[in-house]
Design a protein around this nucleic acid. Structure first.
Lengths: 160, 160
DNA sequence: CAACTAATTTGCAAGTCATGCGAATTAGCA
DNA sequence: TGCTAATTCGCATGACTTGCAAATTAGTTG
């Protein structure tokens, strides 16, 4: 992660200005472990800076991604999520609550396809789908667990 | 993959009807190696069955996914793509042309996070990002290769 | 084989997520 | 302090997908 100070540097290096909006969004992003969506951040930002525009949030997130300060996470089912953690890590997605958590995977970076050897690999991403401990617990305690949808369908459904 | 015959069985097992539209979409899906979007399939379907509705294509694809006959692939940048291959495989995405190809990865299914051990894993997905051989070749031959966008940005850009 | 009924198909409206655009503002520099 | 290019903002627009209700049709029954 990047400190706010170096953020200023990063911005200037790109001939960009360090506006209050950008600082706020950057800060909120790093205080947040939940991989928020643009709307999530907009809600939080609005609380601290009434009048800030959703348009600006989108714009800033795109800029930060361009500058390598954050990553997009696009794991189906709805809005893009943003991850300030640009280090080597992967994700575990709960098919029940939709939570995404960062995880580490030994040897992931060196995985290679056994076929398609004529493909230059720049990046390897691993996504685990399953049930987080919180959901697993509440499930045992009683509730539903109805019609078994596929994980993907489940994700889709929780969109609403 | 599933034969058209068993498709009928699968449909009946779900109390569903085997309509010409469904048969066509299922067939096109399996003739197609390109992980098409709903619009792609709609275009192909329209050629063989003028008047078929895009709505029906979406609906059918969702049903097939529910029945486990195909998978959704949602790797950012635009529309959902569909994959008739529900076996154990992963994907390689070309950041240049957007092509997605199926690949196999030894040991992928047994990957586990080194942290987050309190997470029940149902599925492991690996995504490689890079440059396919075709793009790599044409790139060498001459063309651009301008401003280095992040892979994700690149994907976003090719959306349009 | 004709009738019947629930499942499907369709087209259009509506919804979600994200970006384009132009006018008003503002950060950073001289 | 002033200047100017960069940025913010909000509205319109666009891409993709689903909801809905009326018209059709697959599959079953007599």
């Amino acid at each position: 992660m990047q400190s706010p100070a170096s953020l200023a540097v990063a911005y200037r290096a790109n001939g960009r200005k360090l506006t209050p909006q950008r600082q706020l969004i950057f800060q909120l992003m790093h205080e947040n472990e939940t991989h928020p969506t643009a709307e999530d951040l907009f809600a939080q930002a609005s609380a601290q800076m009434p009048g800030i525009s959703l348009r600006t949030v989108y714009q800033t997130l795109n800029e930060l991604a361009e500058m390598g300060e954050l990553q997009f996470i696009e794991i189906g089912s709805g809005a893009t999520r943003f991850d300030p953690n640009v280090g080597d890590h992967h994700h575990a997605v709960c098919d029940s609550c939709g939570q995404i958590r960062d995880v580490h995977v030994r040897g992931a970076a060196t995985l290679r396809p056994t076929d398609s050897t004529d493909f230059v690999i720049n990046e390897v991403g691993v996504v685990f789908r399953g049930i987080c401990s919180a959901c697993e617990t509440s499930r045992r305690k009683g509730s539903s667990q109805r019609g078994a949808k596929s994980p993907v369908q489940q994700a889709k459904a929780s969109k609403k």
